[in-house]
C-alpha cells in the first residue's frame, strides 16, 4: 500500500491504483477546496436545524419558516395594496366602474381572474358557453338580459336557484306529459322552424301556428321573439341553447330542460361581483 510510484513520462506520483495497466496519476486537490466541502457540510447542518428539511409532517425548522407562510405574507401585502381600489369597486355601480378608465382596467383584470376561478367551469374560459345548456356570454343573445344591472342580478342571485328568493326562475311545462299530442308537438316544432324560414312542411307549420298561439305565445311572444322578464328565449334567431334541428326542438318542447346557476352574492364579495359584471359585459355581448 505504501508503495509510491512515479509515472515515467510526467514525473508525477501515481495514486497506486491500476486498471488494466493504466495507472492513475495523483493530481491533488488543493486543500482549501476540501475545506470548502467541509464548510458546505457544516452549512447544510445549520440549514437542517433552521429550515424545514426533514420530510415529515410538522417537522418545521427552529425559525418556523414555511413556504405557505412566506407566500401568505405576500398575498396579505398584495391584498392590502389592492384594498383602496377594492373599496371603490365595492361602493360603485358596475356602470360607474365601466365609465371610469382606472376602475374599468382594474375590474377587467380582476374579473378575468375571478371568471377563470368561478365561472369558466360552466361558461368556458372565454365565456363561450358549453353544450348542454350553459349559455355563451360572448354573443349578443341574453336570456335574462345583457345590461349591467341584469348581469349583476344574475351573478348575485343565480338562476332557478331554490336557495335564493331573489333568483329569477322560469319553468317551461313538459308538453309531452298529456298537454299536447305528439302530432301537435311535431306541428308546433315545424312552426318554430318556420319562424326562421327553415320549415320544410308548410301544412304542419300552419297547424302549429294555432298550437303556438295557444300554448307558447304567452311566454315566447306572438312572434316568438321571447321575453327576458320571463327568461323565455327568442325563437327567431340563430342561437339555440339545446340544439336547433327539429329533433332537438321536438325533444325540448316535450321534455324541456332548464339550467341552474348558483347565487354568488354570498360566496364572492361585492367588489368581485362588480368586477365580474364589468368583465362579462365586456366579453362582447354587453348591452
Amino acid at each position: 500500500m505504501a508503495q509510491v510510484e512515479k509515472d515515467s513520462l510526467t514525473g508525477t506520483d501515481t495514486t497506486g491504483h491500476e486498471w488494466d495497466g493504466l495507472k492513475e496519476l495523483n493530481t491533488p486537490l488543493p486543500k482549501w477546496w476540501l475545506y470548502v466541502f467541509f464548510a458546505c457540510i457544516a452549512f447544510s447542518a445549520v440549514w437542517v436545524v433552521l429550515y424545514p428539511a426533514i420530510p415529515l409532517q410538522g417537522a418545521t425548522g427552529t425559525t418556523g419558516w414555511t413556504a405557505r407562510g412566506a407566500i401568505g405574507g405576500i398575498v396579505e401585502a398584495e391584498r392590502a395594496r389592492q384594498e383602496p381600489m377594492l373599496a371603490r369597486l365595492r361602493s360603485a355601480t358596475p356602470a360607474a366602474i365601466a365609465a371610469n378608465p382606472e376602475l374599468r382596467a382594474f375590474a377587467l383584470a380582476g374579473g378575468r381572474g375571478a371568471f377563470a376561478i368561478n365561472c369558466a367551469g360552466c361558461h368556458g374560459a372565454g365565456g363561450q358557453g358549453a353544450q348542454g345548456g350553459f349559455p355563451s356570454l360572448a354573443d349578443d343573445e341574453w336570456i335574462w338580459g345583457g345590461s349591467m344591472e341584469a348581469i349583476q342580478a344574475t351573478i348575485q342571485h343565480g338562476i332557478r336557484n331554490a336557495e335564493d328568493d331573489a333568483a329569477r326562475t322560469s319553468m317551461m311545462p313538459r308538453f309531452a306529459d298529456g298537454v299536447l299530442t305528439p302530432v301537435q308537438i311535431n306541428d308546433v316544432a315545424e312552426h318554430v322552424l318556420s319562424l326562421a324560414n327553415r320549415s320544410t312542411d308548410a301544412a304542419a307549420a300552419g297547424r302549429g301556428a294555432t298550437v303556438f298561439a295557444e300554448n307558447c305565445a304567452a311566454c315566447h311572444g306572438e312572434q316568438g321573439r321571447g321575453n327576458r322578464d320571463l327568461g323565455a328565449p327568442n325563437l327567431t334567431d340563430q342561437i339555440w341553447l339545446y340544439g336547433s334541428d327539429k329533433a332537438s326542438l321536438v325533444r325540448n318542447i316535450g321534455y324541456p330542460r332548464a339550467g341552474v346557476m348558483p347565487a354568488w352574492a354570498g360566496r364572492l364579495d361585492p367588489a368581485t361581483v362588480n368586477m365580474l359584471t364589468v368583465y362579462v359585459h365586456a366579453l362582447g355581448g354587453g348591452e
Binding site: 491533488p28 486537490l29 488543493p30 486543500k31
Partner: peptide
C-alpha cells in the same frame, strides 16, 4: 518534449490526495 524519468518505486508514505497551499 517529455522529460522521461525513470520509474522509481519508493517506500515513502503514500502521497497526499490534497495539496497544501
Amino acid at each position: 518534449k517529455a522529460k522521461v524519468q525513470p520509474a522509481v518505486a519508493t517506500t515513502a508514505a503514500a502521497p497526499s490526495l490534497y495539496a497544501e497551499h
